[in-house]
Amino acid sequence: MTTPAAATWHGALLAAFKAQELRLLPYVPDNVLKPLIAAAEADPFFTAFPVAREEEAVGIVAGGVMAGMRGAALMQTSGFATLPNALASLACAFQIPVVTVVSERGTLGEFNPGQAIVCRTMRPILDSMGIEHHTLTRLDEAGFIAERALKQAFATRWPACLILSPLLTARPQ
């Protein structure tokens, strides 16, 4: 592990982003991602900003990475469900390492039936396109998994997805 252990899950993720030179972070707002977004916006290393829709974030990240600025699109589960066409037609077809970071709603205490249903579509969508995904559940391994997954995405020129489980973001660590 090259990234030092972090005290928070968002600190671990941002450290992994820095280690792999991800600077461009378009996001669609999400309550769980709030501390990650706030920390990224406060750090001049990152260019983090809101977009209107998740597809837009995928396009921005794709353009950035082809122009030499790596990035990740940040969103929640229901937003990810809007992405299969953009991931298939842009990220996968062109073999562009677009990274998505998804805070997982719809499981482990969800109150919204819609979120619970859409959550079940996420991993089948990723699997159907051969997009490697990792679910981060523990603070002590989050940085290691994130950094290795990012490293592989850029080395193999293939999109990747980091799923942030409530086990990581909501459970006391």
Partner: peptide, 25 residues
């Protein structure tokens, strides 16, 4: 030149990503 396939509507977002990565271009 970058020639898109089926991600309809993403020409401007892709261009924005390139523009942010390379402000001199």
């Amino acid at each position: 030149n970058f020639y898109m396939l089926g991600s309809m509507g993403l020409a401007a977002p892709i261009a924005l990503g390139v523009a942010l990565a390379q402000p001199q271009r």
